[in-house]
Structures are given as C-alpha cells and as structure tokens.
Design a protein around this nucleic acid. Structure first.
Ligand SMILES: [Mn+2]
Ligand SMILES: [Mn+2]
Ligand SMILES: [Zn+2]
Ligand SMILES: [Zn+2]
Lengths: 142, 142
DNA sequence: TGTTAATTCGCACATAATGCAGATCAGCAT
DNA sequence: ATGCTGATCTGCATTATGTGCGAATTAACA
C-alpha cells in the first residue's frame, strides 16, 4: 500500500495545468503538507508557515487549503470537536480519534462495502467514513 | 428493535431526579424532540419552539440541548458541513448523509465490531461512528 | 406562603472561517 | 528583458455558530 499523496513537484504542475499560479506561499504549504500525518488544522499550518515565512497570512493558508481540496489533493475532516483538519493522504482510509489527546490517526479497514446496512430505502451509498473513538496507546493509563 | 428514546414524561422525571428543574421551555423541547427523526439543528428547534412559545430564547434551547446531551439522552452530531445536529435516538446507530439535500438518515449496521482494522498500534476502539455519503431516494435523478 | 437555588433571557464575547478590495505578483506574450 | 493581465496576497470587516455572564424570574420544596 503506497500512500496516495502528491509531492510538492506534482502539486506544482497540477496547479499550473489548471491555470492556478504557484506562489512561494503555496510552495511552502505544499512542503509542509507533504508526508504530514498529523491531520493539521489551518491554524497549525499557519503557525509552522509563519516561522519559515514571516508575514504569510492566515487567509492565504485557508485559500490554498481550499484550492487543494477542490483539486481533490486534500481530504477535509470535520472532527466531532475542534476545528477543521486537513489530510494530504487522499487514500481510501478512515480515522481513529483519541478522546484523551484528541489526535487523529489513520486506519485502514478491509471490506467496508460488506457491511450489512439497514438504512433508508433507495439510498445509494458512495462511500463510508468511519471514525473509531477510543484511547490511543500513549494515553492508556499504565 | 425498539428505538432507544425517552418520552417527555421520562425526561421530566429524569431531570427532576438529578436536581434539574422542569420548566415550560424544557417541556416544549422534550415534546419537539420526541420521535423527531430529522436530526434538527438548534436553530431549527428554536424556530419550531418560537411558534409555540413566542419569546423563548435561543440561549435556552442550547442550554436544554446541552443538558440533555450531558444526561446521555441526546446524541450530538457534527456533520461534515453545517451546524451541529441533535439526535434524540440514542440507539447504537449510524447515519447516511445525502450530498444533494444534506439530510441525515438513520442507518443500522450489523457486526461493526467485526471490521478488520489496521490502525495505530495499541489504540483501543470503544465505538465506531459510520457516515455513509451518497444520494437519497428523493434526490436520485429519474 | 416563603425560601432558595436553578433557570431564563438578553447581551457581550469567543472562535472559525469567509467576503472584499487595493496592492502585488506569476505566467505569458511580445 | 519588458510589459500586460488576471490570479493572488494581505488586512480588515463580516458572518456563523455557539458560550459566558448576571439581573430578573421561577420551580421545587419546606
Ligand atoms: Mn488520515
Ligand atoms: Mn440518528
Ligand atoms: Zn491519545
Ligand atoms: Zn437527498
């Protein structure tokens, strides 16, 4: 299983090929997202970006994240508490959320489509998103 | 399968037994929630309530919903878009969200715990919440 | 009926995210 | 290399959703 993520170089040509410009701000965010497994918030990325590029605007961070999401290069996660999180891993995967530390971890689930669901008549499900709530290893009380 | 919901009368004694008072505002909300399958927002309940009790405060609606959630008599749902929704059905159930009309429908899923998950080492999952994204019957193009 | 702590309500405040517009700049044509 | 032009950036205002607070009110009980 190879993670379904784009390198900054790939994102650069992706943006250019659609008439979007590639600015230093965007290149920085491409780099901060690449390989990022933390499911960061916009604020967290803004804080990181600000250290490397003082003066970058939070507005620009949001703008770029929205652009990436529109291109399908970023999953947008709405956890049950806290602000929106962004996931550069656009694999078909799910998440485990620790109710102690709040962190999100990737989870791969097999045969999700085999789930026997009794639901609304005529509803055509295109995808299932699963969030496992529990306690992560670090937060287990000894 | 009987829905795991409390009647207004049951909620009344539930509140009183914990030292919470039962006001006309709360009784109205108990009634508006009973059997309500729409997964309403606070604003939607406020609008309904306002017709029957002009002058009721949105603040009071939030207060009562939070109290019910604290008692475990209401599930709080954070859909991927839009504001918080409240679910008087506290069964172990899941949801199907129509990407056209945005409505949430109840879904019952068997053997969720049989899902083979490859996830973070040591994570102890207590519950899985599944959201099926798709298109509901009403929104299918003929 | 009186007491008292819980509740209601209106308003201020908080937080997350978007709308807007002038200054700036990336990408392209020349 | 230079200039053009629409996309972008930034700061600020604004929206959307919800919470904090406190004076006035009221449910529950003695
Ligand atoms: Mn992920
Ligand atoms: Mn439900
Ligand atoms: Zn944890
Ligand atoms: Zn629909």
């Amino acid at each position: 299983m190879v993670l379904d993520v784009r390198t900054p170089v790939e994102l650069t040509s992706d943006f250019r090929s659609r008439g979007l410009k590639v600015t230093p701000q965007r290149q920085l965010l491409f780099r901060l997202l690449y390989g990022n497994m933390t499911h960061p918030t916009a604020e967290a990325l803004f804080a990181q970006a600000s250290e490397l590029m003082p003066g970058i605007s939070l507005r620009t961070v949001y703008q770029t994240l929205n652009d990436l999401a529109a291109l399908g290069e970023l999953q947008v996660l709405h956890p049950s508490s806290g602000s929106t999180r962004f996931d550069p891993n656009v694999d078909d995967h799910h998440h485990a959320r620790c109710r102690t530390c709040g962190e999100l971890h990737d989870v791969y689930v097999d045969r999700v489509q085999d789930l026997a669901m009794r639901g609304p008549v005529g509803f055509v499900a295109e995808r299932a998103n699963i969030v496992f709530d529990g306690v992560c290893a670090d937060c287990q009380v000894g």
